[in-house]
Simulated scan of single mutants.
Amino acid sequence: MSQQTTDVTHRMIASPAGRIHLVEQGAGPLVLLVHGFPESWYSWRHQLPALAAAGYRAVAIDVRGYGRSSRPGNTAAYRMLDLVEDNVAVVRALGEETAVVVGHDWGSTIAASSALVRPDVFRAVALLSVPYTPPGGPRPSEVFAEMGGDEEFYVSYFQEPGRAEAEIEPGVRGWLAGFYAAFSADTMPTPGAPDPHFVGRGGTLRDRFPAGRLPGWLGEDDLDVYAGEFERTGLSAALNRYRNMDRDWNDLADFRGSPVTQPSLFLGGALDASTTWLAEAIRAYPTTLPGLVSSHVLDGCGHWIQQERREEVNRILTGWLASLPG
Rank of each mutant, 00 (worst) to 15 (best):
T287Q: 13
G200Q: 11
I168L: 13
G269L: 09
F153R: 02
A111R: 04
E311F: 04
R19T: 14
D222P: 00
E311A: 15
P140M: 11
R241P: 00
Y42V: 02
P170F: 03
I110R: 04
Y154I: 09
A115K: 02
P138N: 10
H46L: 09
G219N: 10
S70C: 07
A112M: 07
D221F: 09
M1T: 14
D105W: 04
P49A: 06
E280R: 14
A27C: 02
R57K: 10
L116V: 09
A270W: 08
G178K: 10
R232W: 08
P263F: 06
G319N: 09
Y42M: 01
G326D: 15
S274M: 13
R64H: 09
P290W: 11
V90G: 03
L223A: 14
H296L: 02
T288G: 03
H10N: 13
R139A: 14
L235S: 06
T276M: 05
D246Y: 12
R201P: 07
R309W: 04
R57L: 03
A93I: 08
P194W: 01
R241G: 06
L214E: 05
D150N: 10
E160D: 11
M1H: 12
A99Y: 02
S141V: 11
L214D: 09
A211E: 14
V8E: 01
D186F: 07
D186H: 09
A145M: 10
A93G: 13
G212K: 07
I61F: 06
E39V: 06
R79D: 15
T233W: 04
L317V: 12
T287I: 01
I316C: 05
E24Q: 15
V34P: 00
R315N: 00
R139K: 15
W106D: 04
L235A: 09
P72S: 11
G18D: 11
S15T: 15
E280V: 12
D272V: 03
P134L: 11
F158R: 10
G171E: 11
S43A: 14
L205N: 01
L239V: 08
L324S: 08
P210F: 08
R309G: 00
R310N: 08
L33C: 03
